[in-house]
C-alpha cells in the first residue's frame, strides 16, 4: 500500500482532538468520518482535526470533511482545524470550508477557540 495512514484521538472532558497521519483520500477519509461520527453520536460535538501530519488532502477527503462539518452543525457543534500547510489552507478557503469551521495554526489555539 502506497498510503500509510493512521488516526489518533485525544478525548478531553468537553472536546476531542482527531489527528490524522498520511494522505487524506477516500480510505483515510472514511475512517476519519467513522471516528468523528462515533464521537458526535456519543455527545462530543466540540472537535479539532489536527492535519499537521497529513501530507496531502484530495477533493474526496475534503468532501468527507464537509460531511463532518454538516453533522456537527446539525447538533450545534464546532469544528476547528489546525496544522494545515499553506496550500491546504488556501484550498479550504477556496472551497468555503473556512466559512463554517475555524482554521488555527496549532492544536493549542484550535482547542482554546472551540
Amino acid at each position: 500500500m502506497l498510503n500509510k495512514f493512521d488516526i489518533q484521538i485525544r478525548e478531553a472532558q468537553e472536546h476531542a482532538v482527531i489527528e490524522t497521519t498520511g494522505y487524506l483520500n477516500d480510505a483515510l477519509g472514511e475512517q476519519l468520518s467513522e471516528k468523528a461520527q462515533e464521537l458526535i453520536q456519543g455527545g462530543c460535538v466540540q472537535l479539532v482535526i489536527n492535519l499537521e501530519k497529513t501530507t496531502l488532502i484530495n477533493s474526496i477527503g475534503i468532501s468527507i470533511l464537509i460531511e463532518i462539518i454538516e453533522s456537527l452543525e446539525e447538533r450545534e457543534g464546532t469544528l476547528n482545524f489546525c496544522g494545515l500547510s499553506p496550500t491546504q489552507e488556501r484550498t479550504f478557503r477556496m472551497m468555503a470550508i473556512a466559512k463554517y469551521a475555524g482554521i488555527f495554526p496549532d492544536e493549542e489555539s484550535a482547542v482554546a477557540n472551540l
Binding site: 477533493s59 464537509i66 472551497m95 466559512k99
Partner: peptide, 20 residues
Amino acid sequence: PGIHPDLRKRGRGLQIIKAL
C-alpha cells in the same frame, strides 16, 4: 445538496487545479 450550497461536496477537482 447539503446544508450550505457553497459547500459543494463533489466536482471541485478541476476548480482546485485551475486555482493552483
